[in-house]
Design a protein around this nucleic acid. Sequence first.
DNA 1: TAGATTGTTAATCGATTAACAATC
DNA 2: TAGATTGTTAATCGATTAACAATC
Lengths: 203, 203
Amino acid sequence: MKSTLSRLPVYYCYVQDRLKEGQEYISSSVMAESLSLNPVLVRKDLASVSSAPGRPKMGFRTSQLLQDMKTYLGYDNYNEAVLVGVGGLGKTLLQYPGFKNYGLDVVAGFDVDEHVVGQIVGGKPVYNVSKMEKLVKRLGVKLGIIAVPGPQAQGVADQLVASGIKGIWNFAPAHIDLPADVAIRNENLAASLAALSKLVSKE
Amino acid sequence: MKSTLSRLPVYYCYVQDRLKEGQEYISSSVMAESLSLNPVLVRKDLASVSSAPGRPKMGFRTSQLLQDMKTYLGYDNYNEAVLVGVGGLGKTLLQYPGFKNYGLDVVAGFDVDEHVVGQIVGGKPVYNVSKMEKLVKRLGVKLGIIAVPGPQAQGVADQLVASGIKGIWNFAPAHIDLPADVAIRNENLAASLAALSKLVSKE
DNA sequence: TAGATTGTTAATCGATTAACAATC
DNA sequence: TAGATTGTTAATCGATTAACAATC
C-alpha cells in the first residue's frame, strides 16, 4: 500500500510524458517494461488508482489515467507551506519552480538573520521568526519546511507545532520529537548521496 | 536488509547527538522509545552493524557504535561527485556544507549556460558541459548529480554514463533509462512534499 | 538475587510474484 | 479466431513483531 504510493509519482511522470507525445492509450505492460518493474505490480497499482478499467489489448486511456493519478496523489489540491531557515537550501526551496505543478506553494520564509529578513526571495517575503506563530496561524498554513542547522531543528519544530502546523518536512540532519498528530518526513540529502555512493563502490 | 539501511542514518544522527552530550552507553530500547520504533527492530539493526555485542543492562558503547555505523554506512570513505545543471538547486548542492560530514565532495559543476560557466560556486569550478566527458574521465569520478530540467535529464544521463559515471542522483522529475550497471536514485522534491501534504490533509 | 537489557527463534504480516482465467 | 493485455486468486518472499532464553 505504502509502496504503491511511492511508485505513483514515477508513473505520473511517465504517463505525463506519453500524453505530451500524444499517445492516446498506455499499456501497463509496456510501462512496466520501460520502468524496469514487474508487470503485475504495475497492473495492480494502476488498477487501484484508475477510475475506468484498462481495456485488454488497448491499455488505459492516457489522459484519464493521468487525471486519476492526479486526484489520487492530491496534485489537484492547492496546498500552502512555510519555510524556516532561509540559507542556501532554504532560498532554493522558496523559489523552486517544481512545486507548482504539484499544487504546492511555499508562501513565506522565516529566519533569525536580519540580513535576509525583509528580503523578497522568489517573490516570497522573508519574516523574522518571532512573527511566525501569529502569521502562520492567520494564514492557516498546515505544512512547514525546516531548513535550519541541525541543532536548531527541534526548537523550530516546536514553534511550528505551536503555530498549528500539522506536517513537517525536515532537511536538518537531526531527529525531531513531535506530537503524534503531526506528520514528519525527514530528508537527509547527504545521507542519500552517501547511500548511493556506497551502492556504487560496493560493485 | 534494505530497510535497515534506510534507518541507519537516523540512528547515526541520534547516536551522534548522544555522544556530544557525553553519554557513554546507549541502550537500544531507550533509542527505540525516543525514535518511536519497535525495540526489537532497533536491537536487530544494531546487532547487524555493531562490532561489539551490546551489554545487557548497559547497552552499546556510544563511541564504538558510532564508529561502527560510520564504517558500515561508508561515511569514512572519501567520495567525489560532479553535478550537472548549475541553476538554483544545482548551486545549492554545489555549496551544500552537509556533504563533508559524510565523506562526500562535489568537486565540479557543469552547465550549458555561458553565464554560469567559468564561475566559482562554493569554491567549485563550473565548466561547459562539452568538457564533461574528458574531465570526468580524467578525475575518475563515479557519482553524478542531475539538476537540469526534466526534458534534458535523459541526455545528460547518457553523457554521464559515457563519462564513466556509475551512480546517478537525479533531481529532474523524469524517468531515466540506464544500463544495468549504473545505479540511480531519483529525488522528486515536489512529489515528496505533495506526499506529506496528502498525509496531512487526509486526517 | 532481581531487573534491565540483549540476542535468537518462531509467528505474523504485508508486499511482490506467479499462474491463470477473462475480455476486447 | 488468435493474440495481447487486463484482472484476480494463490504462492512466495522478506521484513516486522512476538515470545522467550541468556547475561550482566
